[in-house]
Design a protein around this nucleic acid. Structure first.
Lengths: 360, 360
DNA sequence: CTGAAAGCGCTAACAT
DNA sequence: ATGTTAGCGCTTTCAG
């Protein structure tokens, strides 16, 4: 039963080591400086002594003089959303590789919360990765003036950005639906504050133009399963045969909502999502979706941030764009021309055991 | 295009404010001390001046003298596992409420990784919550000597613990299966380093005793969907009619694996999971599972940690135990007495639209 | 390569 | 209630 009433036990300081090794404190300091440029015999001896004393350099004290904490913050929009897990993994791995600690912050889809969290964290970190930030461009630029910032899933002038190829993803989805005979696609919108939401809709408009597919939008809805279920309700009064959802969670909500209402997916309506989260492969029918290289996103953004922290200029030209691919599962099928009736023979049915096909 | 080559811009210090407000630095310090015990006129004026100068107290410098960073670490076993999302939410909320910042660490189910991450983080935080830790009891006790530590989902003598009522959860699951006519339950084990895994198995042994249900164990498997699929393979050579899986992910993997092999769930085999993650409600058939109050776990552990940091003794007697409940969905059904044949009439079929029932 | 001295920004005794 | 004086543990000039 440890007693934590008073400050936790005193650790050995640089002075203790200095005394023990019979050198000056600054020599000890140098033996632990990073990058360790000292390899003299003395340094070796000092390190041994330190080891024996259980000395660890105090990061706080170091930070006070160097103004480098070797910590970075990673702000994500919603820890509940599985997309971020892989992004976090990617970010953590590259950070850890450079001996940086990652401070994860969950903004809970809240503008206000995100802001105050960033403000509070800013002074303790060397830089920040903003993944799917919900705060304004100007606020982000403000932050970027104080510390290196890299933005993920969003494009902002003058701030380094990493995005996925949304236009191409949407285009592939539209082509896929077009090939199945759909001449009308409904976009089910996510949060308005979400940058990908905007570009996906605009990309769909464009793709619709070129492919001669009519498009429309409903929403916005919350980017969750529940949001998708609500969208399904709305779809009741404004039927569709092909739907592109802002993300997988909404797509899954749609599948559930529609199925519950007696609408057959993909028989009556085809659904495409975004992200390729794990659940996309679990839901019935399996969700056709636009997959992004999540892990790579996290690591690319972090790598960039670290290089900026080390003094690199920060690549603020065009955003860095990562490729996407369409994963075809079973939530999309040939358009059913006679709704409510048996499907015409020869038309593709929902397969049950065919493995997912990965395109592009 | 900000230039981050040199340390980020200098912020106003306590001295700047002191000079501007024409008081001594310590007076300024007092005006910002926590809890703000000063309400004099001067303090008010100082705060205004500070506001105007954009002064923010430097947490690092403060930490150096107070040895309190107002940060706590939350270590989770695997960020990929949705269980932790709610726990994190609960922890963050109560931490934020006391103006503490939460440092989230993903151990990626790795003993080694978890250790080094904790070691590196320890000096920068005021305390640590270990959620589903995979490191040894002795290692945890070591850490607990250096900083306040609260352990979640695990019971260790001399360290404050928060656990869920695993025995009761298992018992409820066993009773449920028993009522459905099952006289034999197979436990599909998760990681051996996982404390809940051990206690769940032991609880099942006990429950089996009392309820006169035979039990056996297979595994261990990785606590993931993939692990569950592998378990399904193994089940092929050692058939079962009722399975209790270590967690929902494995249970889902089992459902998928078995279904793919042509085994009907719940017709041929009933499956119960643990955790009640979102996907449990998405998979077909919906997963019957033992639900834990995730959010409450996170907040209870954190609240306890914070009180320890503030000087409370740390409740190291019996662990604090949180209640669980059985959520019955459609992955469990009356035992099929004639496998491979049609079910006897009158026996419960898998319903498709009945809402989930929450018991206990 | 090493030592001496000064100070990062703040807080914590002491005084007044 | 405010000011004065020392540091917290480390890095960093600047000399030797």
């Amino acid at each position: 039963m440890p007693d934590h009433t008073r400050p936790p036990d005193k650790r050995a300081t640089i002075y203790d080591v200095a005394a023990e090794a019979d050198v000056s404190p600054s020599t000890v300091s140098r033996a632990f400086s990073r990058p360790s440029r000292v390899n003299s015999e003395t340094a070796e001896r000092i390190r041994r002594v330190a080891e024996r004393l259980g000395y660890r350099t105090n990061p706080l004290a170091r930070a006070l003089t160097t103004s480098r904490t070797h910590m970075i913050a990673l702000v994500i929009a919603d820890i509940t959303n599985p997309v971020y897990a892989e992004i976090v993994r990617g970010a953590q791995a590259t950070a850890m590789n450079d001996e940086y600690t990652t401070l994860l912050i969950d903004a809970q889809e809240s503008d206000r919360l995100e802001r105050t969290a960033i403000e509070r964290t800013m002074p303790t970190v060397d830089g920040i990765v903003l993944a799917s930030s919900r705060i304004s461009d100007s606020a982000i630029r403000m932050f970027a003036k104080q510390r290196p910032v890299v933005v993920l899933n969003r494009a902002i002038a003058d701030v380094p950005c990493v995005v996925t190829d949304n236009p191409r993803g949407v285009r592939r989805a539209a082509e896929h639906l077009g090939e199945l005979g759909h001449d009308h696609i409904t976009y089910v919108a996510g949060p308005q504050a979400s940058w990908p939401n905007g570009i996906r809709w605009r990309s769909l408009l464009e793709a619709g133009m070129e492919l001669e597919i009519k498009v429309r939008q409903i929403g916005p809805f919350s980017p969750t399963i529940e949001g998708g279920e609500r969208a399904a309700e709305e779809l009741r009064s404004r039927p569709a045969t092909a739907v592109l959802a802002f993300n997988d969670q909404m797509a899954i909500g749609l599948i559930r909502g529609l199925t519950r209402m007696g609408v057959d997916v993909p028989g009556d309506v085809s659904i495409v999502g975004f992200d390729n989260i794990l659940a996309a492969d679990i839901v019935t029918p399996g969700l056709t979706t636009v997959a992004a290289p999540l892990y790579a996103e996290g690591s690319a953004a972090t790598r960039h941030l670290l290089s900026m922290i080390e003094g690199a200029p920060g690549h603020t030209g065009r955003p860095m764009v990562l490729p996407v691919r369409l994963v075809v599962r079973h939530s999309t099928a040939v358009r059913n021309l006679r709704p409510g009736r048996a499907r015409p023979p020869g038309v593709r049915q929902r397969p049950t055991t065919t493995p997912a096909v990965h395109l592009s």
